[in-house]
Structure formats: C-alpha cells, structure tokens
Design a protein around this nucleic acid. Structure first.
Lengths: 340, 340
DNA sequence: AAGTAGCACTCACCGTTCCCGAGTGCCAAT
DNA sequence: ATTGGCACTCGGGAACGGTGAGTGCTACTT
C-alpha cells in the first residue's frame, strides 16, 4: 500500500472540494487528476483515508469531504506556501504605503486583506506591552484635569485623562513632563514602574503623588481593553459562500464580535513557531467557529517575537495555500511599513 | 367608509406581522384585536389598503404584509414613541457612566444599543467640524517631527505629526503652543484659519511658516476620513431573524461595511426635523438595504443641531416604537454624558 | 350606505411516492 | 497491489393530490 499515493489522493480531494464545494467521488477524482490508477483503487485508498479520520462522507452514497484532521494534514504536509506574483506584491506595497498614520495603516491592511483573500480579515493593533515609548506628554486641561498622552515607536497614540487631587501647577506639570520625557524614551511601558522610585526627595509629597498617579494611569492603560484592539473587515465575504455555510452565519458573527474570543486565539497562535499559523475548525476551541478556519501571521518586528498579528477567517473549506501566502505577504509589508 | 378604522387595521397588520413574521389574514386579525367588526368587513378594508399601496400579498390566497409605504404611515401617524421604563433608563445610565474616555463611551453605547434593540447599532463619532476646541498641544518628537494633538469639548483627541523644514527650537515651539492655547479655546475648528493672520510681525518668517503648517495640519485633519468614523455592533443580530431575511445577508453586510453609504444616510437624516428619524426600505436609497430600515437620532448638543448620530438598522419588519424609543433614549444619555 | 354572512375559487404548502444516478463496498480476476 | 464488474444504498428532484388559509364577490341585513 502506497502511503504516498494516499496523500496525493487526500490532496486531490481537498483541492477539488475547495474548488467545487461538493463532496468528491472516486470517479471525479481520476478524471480531474492524473493519478494513473483506476477509480476502484482510489476507492480503496479513500476507505483507508476515512479509517484514518482524514475524510468523511456526509451520507452513504455520496462523495467524501475532508475532515478537520484531513485539512490539518493537508496544511502541514501537503502544501507549500507559494510566493505571490510580482504585480500582487506591488499592489500591496503601493496601497499600504499611502497610509498617513497608524490607524490608516491598520485600516488599509485589513481591507486589503479582506479583498485579497475574499474572507474576513483581522488585524490586531500593535501591542502596547511590547512597544517602546517614544514620548510621554502631559497636558493640563481645565483646573484639575491632566491629559496623559503616550506615543509608541509603532506610532500608536493613547491618551487618558486623570483628575488631580489639587489644582494643577503649570510649573510642576512642566517639570514632571521633562522628567518623564527624559526617562521614558526607548523604554518598554512595562519597565516604567521602577523608573521614578528614586525621585522621592526631589518632589514634594503632593507632587510625587501626582507623579505616581500619572505612572499608575500609564500602567492602567496597559491593561485596558483598548490595549489589544482588533479590527475586522470583509464580514460580507462570509455570506458569499455557495454551500450552506452562509446559513449558519449567526454563531460566526457572534464569535467575531466577541473580541475576547479573537484575542485568545491570536495569543494562542503567537506561541506557534511557524511564520504562518493555522487553526482549523474545532481547533479554534470555540463553538461558533467550528466550521471556520483562522490563518494568521505575526508582524511588527523583523526579528523574533512579533508585536501583533494579522489574519483571515473563512470556512474550513478555504484555499489554504492562497490564504496563507496572502496573509504572510501582508504581514511582511506591514512590518516593513511600520519599521520605515 | 371609516378611514379611521382602516388605519386601525393597518396598525394591527403591522403589529401582528412584526410579531409573527407571517402574512396576516382577515380572520387572524379579528381574533387577535378587538376591532368590533367581522372578518368580511376587514377584508374590504384590506382591499382598500392594498389599493392605496400600504399592504400587499406575497401571493394570492395568502395574508397581507405591510409595504414600505405602509410602514411609513405606521411610523408617521399610527405610533407614539413611548418612554422606556425606569429600570431600563437606569441601566442605560449606569452602563454609560462607567466609561473612561470618549472611545469607551462610543464603544459602550454601540454595544448597549445593539443589545437593547436586538439589531445592528451604529454610532457616529462626534464631528470635529462642529465641535469646539478645548486645547491644542504641540509636542516635539525627534529633531524635526512635531506632534499636533487636538482635544475637543466632546473629549475626542486627534493627533497628526508633521515634518518641519528645519530643526525645531524648543523655545519657539513653546511660544507657538502658548499662542495657540490662548487663541483656540472654545473656538470651532473651522474658525481657526483666520486666527493667526495678524501674527506676521511677531514671528520670523520661518516660525510663521511653521505656525501656518500647524494650522494647515489641523484643517487637514478636518477633512480626513477619520473625521466621521462610524462604529458598528450587533451584526450577528441580523442572522437571528426567523424569516428568509437571514438568507440575503450578503448585500446588507456589504452595505454596512461601506462606511460611505452609512455616512450619506446619516447626513441625510440629520436634515430631518424630528428627533428620531426613520428610513424605511427603499428610502435608504441603497440596493443592499432595501429590506432594512434605519432608525437614528442626533446626539451631542442639548440644543439644536446635533454633533453626530446614533441609530439602529434592522429588517423593515422591526418593532418601530420600541426601536425608536431606545435609540432616542441612548442618544439622550449620550448627550448628557458628553456634556458632563 | 355600511356591515355581514355565505360561498366559490385560488394556491402555497405538505406529505407521499417514485425514479434516477452518483457513489460505494466487495469480490473475483489479473 | 490493482482492476473490472456488480449489487446495493440513498439523497434529491419530479410528479401528484389533498388540505386549509385566505380571498373576492354577491346577496342579504340594519
């Protein structure tokens, strides 16, 4: 028994099923692919593949469709992510380079990815936690309100207002600003806490309290929901599916609105070692997403640990090679843009 | 012929159809509503209503369903928006008051509205054009880069960076900052242009050029795409519909992703005089939205022209009185929160 | 004139039946 | 190991008829 041919058969089944949305039978297989054997042989192979849990039949006397496990094998062993064509690359690059600021970059990326993959695109904002600070700015607004603005090296700007205990003194604020500006540049936000501990003598108790408040606000910002925002685009693509996938959109849409679900998945996938990470069907660990797959890639740091992720979500019956290639490409260009 | 009863019949039809999602016949009508006449009489009335274009039958020998025109009459003349119950009000108020900043307010509002109406909620960010400035802050980042931060009275913060022609002088920047701070407070952004024209003598040519650049950047921000962002929530609610509405989600989702479409609708509706504005079916002037209605209300200014709008989008077969009440309530609380 | 009762008519919907053919599994032959 | 052959399964579509909700019309009542 040729294990190799079986894998060829599996690949053929996945490809055909992805292309046609219909269960594929042994006859159709030998016709569309030059496997060099007869349909009866294919049937034997298919029976074996079914025993191994890679394919299944919706009902007796129907063709086979890949199972989640089948797709998994396909993705892991039967496919190589092929680079995009030069024109495609140029289009991506050109489109992203016109962006004016971080929000615009993210917005353009997510739309672009949705359009290229014909699926739901997801872009996670660069994490504050792993970014370094370019600048901290304090702006008094009103008598007691102080606006704290953080600017990261990825161009992200976050602001919070805090209510001071006493009326603000312009001079003190300016002093704090200078102190912070000198100390935070290039630091990670997470390192911030210890940075001002030695200042106890230089400031009055009140002023020090204010300084600590500022630091506290910065740290709070870290843990805020907005820290790991994700942006979506292309939900309409879900409805385009020919099969009955379009009929059970409810749970999928719900899952997508639950940012928490996406967050968990994204951070799970950040652990994966491969450049492009894939979660297929039940692997998403979420009921609403059992019939979908999630393809993501890290971006934002040329070397090693990525700052955040981009990805695409679509029916498990998706074109994995193409999707993986596109996601990877967009992630790369995103990294390049942000570094530049 | 009693025109009054006919309107009663129309109201009953709308109410029943909204409740059941099924065409309503004459018999069911007399049973569920105490109209005091027989089904034959109702049939005559229904025939008249159909002639007037307020109702239609999907096919012979089926009940009637309201047309867009029918809903229009229902909304305009047959319904009064009833206030929410006290507990509901309290819930809204409590939920919105916990918000920490403008983004959070908007985010909470849109989720809340989606949940309360069981439809797709839309919140438009407060327009910069109509807001007044609370503060302008200039922050040098790097040698030549200047970060311009705008803070509006609605709490919205926008920032842009600009590249100066020469290296920045701390002192000059501080001076510009002071000048701007003194002049912009309480002004509309649109008024900004003329504010610095008289400063020609006080600054060197270079510095004046920089000042003009800053003003230019501010004005550019005005026309930027981000100016009129809208945020959505509850798209999953679209899929909950019992009838076949859920099957044609594609075009609807596409329309919702086209922010332009929503923008146009929102600005159209801003012209309406009523507090709560409704667009029914084809009135949306968009093919993807022919089977949906859009209920919006302005918010952000206690008197007169609103700064932006909130709304809900759902199937034309929606509970208009309830939706209108909820949208109006959320708009009011939103106004209150932003003012406070 | 407005309302009602009665009645013939229409037609979507539902369940039944039937048939077709794609697809399978198995077996004997190569 | 592969293949041709064959009996078997069963989903899906077409044809069919009965049922009942609903209508429109007409003749009668108030």
């Amino acid at each position: 028994m040729s294990d190799e041919r079986r894998m060829d058969v599996l690949r053929a089944i996945v490809e055909d099923y992805v292309a046609t949305s219909e269960p594929v039978g042994s006859r159709a297989l030998v016709e569309r692919h030059s496997l060099g054997v007869s349909s009866a042989t294919i049937r034997n192979d298919m029976a074996a593949l079914e025993d191994s849990g890679y394919i299944a039949q919706p009902h007796t006397s129907a063709g086979r469709i890949p199972t989640d496990r089948g797709y998994r094998v396909f993705v892991d062993r039967l496919t190589t992510v092929k680079p995009l064509s030069a024109p495609e690359k140029r289009a991506i690059s050109a489109f992203l380079e016109d962006a004016v600021d971080l929000d615009d970059v993210v917005d353009r990326s997510v739309r672009l990815l949705a359009q290229l993959t014909h699926q739901v695109a997801v872009v996670q904002y660069p994490s504050l936690r792993r970014s370094t600070l370019r600048h901290v700015e304090l702006v008094p607004v009103g008598q007691r309100q102080l606006l704290v603005v953080l600017i990261t090296d990825t161009g992200r700007v976050e602001q919070r207002t805090l209510e001071a205990a006493r009326d603000l003194d312009e001079v003190v604020v300016a002093q704090l600003r200078a102190t912070l500006a000198a100390r935070v540049a290039g630091r990670r936000i997470a390192e911030l806490a210890g940075l001002v501990d030695d200042l106890a003598e230089q400031y009055s108790a009140d002023d020090l309290a204010l300084l600590r408040r500022v630091v506290a606000v910065v740290e709070e910002t870290l843990h805020q929901e907005s820290e790991e925002r994700v942006v979506l685009a292309g939900t309409a693509n879900l409805a385009r599916s020919k099969d009955d996938f379009a009929r059970s959109l409810g749970p999928v849409l719900e899952a997508l609105e639950e940012q928490v679900v996406l967050m968990r998945l994204l951070s799970d996938m950040a652990e994966d070692s491969a450049t492009v990470s894939v979660r297929i069907g039940h692997e998403t660990q979420h009921d609403g997403l059992v019939s979908t797959s999630f393809v993501t890639s890290g971006y934002g740091d040329e070397s090693g640990a990525a700052v955040a992720r981009v990805g695409a979500i679509g029916p498990t019956r998706m074109d994995y090679p193409a999707t993986m290639a596109t996601v990877r490409a967009v992630a790369r260009y995103l990294t390049r843009i942000l570094a530049g």
